[in-house]
Amino acid sequence: MTQPRRSFQVGTGLFILLGFAALTYLATQTTSIANYQQGDSYALKAKFSNIGQLKVRAPVKLAGVRIGSVQSITLDPQTLSAIVMIGIDKRFAEIPDDSAAAIFTSGLLGDQYVGIQPGGSPDMFKDGDEVILTQSSMQLEDLIGKFLVGGDTAKQGDQAKTDGSE
């Protein structure tokens, strides 16, 4: 075909490529598909009795710096606690193996993340290690409950009843 027809075809091809590139980008980077892929990282295991609203791909932070993300969340059928697999970036390989993991909330209603509190052991975490010291998510309902009863945990049951009648 003559010249102008060819250039239309090339341009159209580029446009279609661009469109599909955008679609691929959106599908793989902004949706749940993104969670199936991981970078160069090593895995740690942590058991929590309650993970609250923690979601897969939630950040893992140490001293406020993001060092990795939550890879998967499953339930341990024996202990009936949550097993959270954490991927830590290879760059942060020097974490003492007695460090603790806790689930925090960013802001009052914000999303939850895993915070690592470093310990003092001379040995470092290796791929597949378990974080022994964990602290579960602080449930908002519990917090509100404590706040309403003025921190008096001993009489919590009675107070709850009298609250209703007041």
Partner: peptide
């Protein structure tokens, strides 16, 4: 940045 994308990818479905 992580929260921005992380929350998105955990909620948005293809």
């Amino acid at each position: 940045n992580g929260t921005f994308w992380g929350n998105m990818t955990s909620t948005v479905e293809v």
